[in-house]
Simulated scan of single mutants.
Amino acid sequence: MPTDLKPTVRPEDTLERLDIRLGRVLSAELEPSAPRPAYRLQIDFGRYGVRSSVGRFTSHPPSELVGRQVMGVLNFEPRQIGDVSSEVLIIGIQARGKDSGEATFLTPALEGKLGSKLF
């Protein structure tokens, strides 16, 4: 059973360096300046504040995103997407049957406290 796994790494060199925390989507609207269809999201990370993100979660209507809990990487450098500075990367996977980069978000099975760290 062949796989294309990346080389083994130590947690202290990777996961422990990333600040991945739980947030709640406050708003989702199409971002017209993005090069591909994408939403501009406002996400509440509790004591870590409200952050903006631009992501290709367009397989979901905005009403399905608002109120959902999502995981985001808070300590990546902001990335300019169109006219917007995307401050946080929301963790997702490619949506089934969709173009490359079109994603669905990862969310916890149970509600968690906003700002909780992934471990």
Rank of each mutant, 00 (worst) to 15 (best):
F57D: 09
G72Q: 04
I20S: 00
R56S: 10
E77T: 13
L41A: 09
K98A: 15
P78E: 06
Q80K: 14
T3L: 03
S59T: 13
L89D: 04
F45W: 02
L65D: 02
F45Q: 00
S27W: 06
N75A: 06
F119E: 14
S27K: 07
P37F: 10
V50A: 04
S100M: 10
F76K: 07
L106E: 04
Y48I: 03
L26Q: 12
G46W: 02
P37R: 11
G72E: 01
P11V: 14
R24P: 03
T8E: 11
V66N: 03
H60S: 02
R96E: 15
D44R: 03
P7E: 11
R10A: 15
G72D: 00
Y48F: 15
R79P: 05
M71A: 10
G49D: 07
I20F: 01
G67K: 08
A109D: 14
S33C: 13
T107N: 08
S100D: 14
E64Y: 07
R47H: 14
L18F: 11
T107V: 09
M71T: 01
E64M: 10
G23D: 09
A34P: 07
L5I: 11
L22N: 05
L89T: 07
R56N: 01
M71C: 09
E64W: 03
F45D: 00
L89Q: 03
I43A: 09
T58Y: 00
Q94M: 04
L89Y: 08
S86C: 06
S116P: 03
S100G: 14
I91D: 00
P62Q: 09
A103L: 15
T107F: 08
E64G: 04
F45V: 05
Y39K: 01
D19M: 09
L89W: 07
E87P: 04
P108R: 07
I91G: 00
P35N: 07
G55A: 14
V73F: 01
L22E: 04
K6A: 13
V88G: 00
V73H: 01
L5C: 07
L74T: 02
T107A: 14
I43R: 06
I93P: 00
G46I: 05
G23H: 08
E102V: 15
I43V: 15
D44K: 04
L18N: 04
G115E: 10
K98G: 01
G115P: 07
P7C: 02
F45L: 04
G92T: 02
D13P: 04
D4R: 12
K117M: 02
D83T: 13
T3D: 09
I81E: 08
G46H: 02
D19L: 10
L30H: 13
S85T: 08
P2F: 00
V84E: 12
A28P: 01
T58K: 01
P11G: 06
G101H: 07
F119P: 01
F105T: 03
L114S: 09
R79C: 11
R24K: 14
P108L: 08
T14G: 06
D4G: 09
K6G: 10
T3Y: 06
D99N: 11
R24Q: 13
D83N: 15
P61I: 00
M1V: 12
